[in-house]
Nucleic acid binder design. Sequence first.
DNA 1: CGTCCAGGTCTAC
DNA 2: GGTAGACCTGGACGC
Length: 306
Amino acid sequence: MIDLRRVFLSHGIAALPPMRLDEKAWTFEITVPLARERARTLTISQAHAGVGLVAARNQAVSAELAVAIMAQLRHVLSLDVDLSAFYAVAAEDPELDWVVNGAGRMVRSPTVFEDVVKTICTTNTSWSGTTRMINALVEHLGRKAPNAPAQGPDGRAFPTPEAMAAAPDTFYKKVAAAGYRSAYLKQLARDVAAGRVDLERLGTASREELPDDEVARQLQALPGVGPYAAAHIMLMLGRYDRLILDSWTRPTYARLMGSKRPVSDRTIIKRFRRYGPSAGLAFWLFLTRDWLAEAQATAPNVTRPV
DNA sequence: CGTCCAGGTCTAC
DNA sequence: GGTAGACCTGGACGC
């Protein structure tokens, strides 16, 4: 059983274009590129107690297209991720045993490229800065869905590496106001577009082909990606080897532990060592355990959860 | 109006 | 291998 509301709230990226979260209606919207198709906006909601995946708001779709859409949804909602090993450990952890009720699946972008770009745009800036940068990328460089509004990022897919590589420096500096990240973003887009860097393989390769350490090494070789960004991206890749340690997670952990003083990274790592390759996921869920309750308190919904 | 900093990273010691 | 300093930007503060 999967609680889709918890997937929607898995992390902040799910609220950045071309994704949109409605915490009142509990719907999640995403505009995705589909092969030989224009971009398409999908709306997902959980109907009652079952796993009701609904791709609504669209005209009739062919059987072939429906298959493609479902494949996208499985990926975006991490429905294909196997959490059994993680749940087995969590069930024995009084502070984390609640996760076995369907938590632990992250919203993922259709491409690793998109997750990398978004993550770079979270570094060393405020959340308003992140949304400004991503909004600009999607609005000005993303492909439109048929019924997309003329203005704004709505109804547009995330830009391709080619589109981002072709955008002039002035766009990154003046419109996205990405500052020193501008050069990182453009270099990344050019490397991916030219085939010098294969990010998508990081999302499809098995652990045997590419161990977590190797994935981290390749990610950190990218411009603007350091330990924080690599751990963040890897959480979405289903590689939970390392913890996301940054200026938000550290104080949040200390607060939840009731500690007045900062808690050292070493102590945090030790707390989650029992989770082995799932340590990063355990840490993240520990930090975000109240998000669902907080969202419901702020935006009481009309359809009460079952 | 100046300083600080936000879900860091890079370079140079 | 570990650690200062610089780095774009704009919003939140103090003065």
